[in-house]
C-alpha cells in the first residue's frame, strides 16, 4: 500500500509499486482526466504536476512519489493559473476532440507558473512534448499568450 498526496488529499493505493502513476490515477483512483496516449513519454497526454513540475505520469512509477505533491487536471479549476489557462482555452475554442487537452492545459499551466511571459521559443520548448492529432497548435499558442496577458493584469 502506497500513500500519495493527490490534489491535496492523501490517497492510499493498493497497486504494485512499479505501476505508473497514470494507471494508478485512472484505474486505481478513477481520476480519468489524465490521459493515456503512448505510455512511453512521447505524447504528453498524461502530463501532471509533481511538486509544480510538468511530469509524464506514464513513466513515473508510484514508488517514486511518496511525499510529493501531485496535481492533476481535476484540480486546475481551483488553481489560479490553471483557471486562467482554462478560460483562455474556452474563449479561443482551442479543443477539438479534446483528448490531448488535459495534458496541454497541464503543460501550459506549468509553463506559465515558471515563466509568466513566455516567448514563442519558450512555448515551443515547453509544449512540444504534447501531441495534438486534431491540430490545435495555433490556438494553443494564442491561448497561452492570452492567459499570460490575463495573469499579468490580475491583481
Amino acid at each position: 500500500m502506497i500513500t500519495l498526496s493527490i490534489n491535496g488529499v492523501q490517497r492510499s493505493i493498493d497497486l504494485p509499486p512499479d505501476t505508473p502513476l497514470l494507471w494508478a490515477l485512472r484505474d486505481g483512483l478513477g481520476l480519468t482526466g489524465t490521459k493515456y496516449g503512448c505510455g512511453i513519454a512521447l505524447c504528453g497526454a498524461c502530463t501532471v504536476h509533481v511538486d509544480g513540475q510538468a511530469t509524464l505520469a506514464c513513466v513515473t512509477p508510484i514508488s517514486e512519489l511518496a511525499g510529493k505533491n501531485i496535481q492533476t487536471i481535476e484540480a486546475m479549476a481551483e488553481d489560479a493559473t490553471g483557471q486562467k489557462v482554462q478560460a483562455a482555452w474556452l474563449s479561443l475554442g482551442v479543443p477539438q476532440c479534446g483528448y490531448c487537452q488535459p495534458g496541454q492545459v497541464m503543460a501550459a499551466t506549468a509553463l506559465l507558473k515558471h515563466n509568466a511571459q513566455p516567448a514563442d521559443a519558450d512555448i515551443d520548448k515547453a509544449m512540444s512534448r504534447n501531441i495534438c492529432r486534431c491540430g490545435t497548435y495555433t490556438r494553443i499558442r494564442a491561448a497561452i499568450k492570452q492567459a499570460a496577458g490575463e495573469l499579468e493584469n490580475a491583481p
Binding site: G33, K35, E74, M76, A77, V94, P95, G98, P102
Partner: peptide, 21 residues
C-alpha cells in the same frame, strides 16, 4: 456558441471510451 463539451474537456471531466468505468 462555445462547444457544449468545452468546459468538461478543459477540466478533465469529459468521458471518452477509454475512460469508461
Amino acid at each position: 456558441q462555445l462547444s457544449v463539451d468545452g468546459r468538461d474537456i478543459v477540466s478533465g471531466r469529459a468521458q471518452y471510451g477509454i475512460d469508461t468505468r
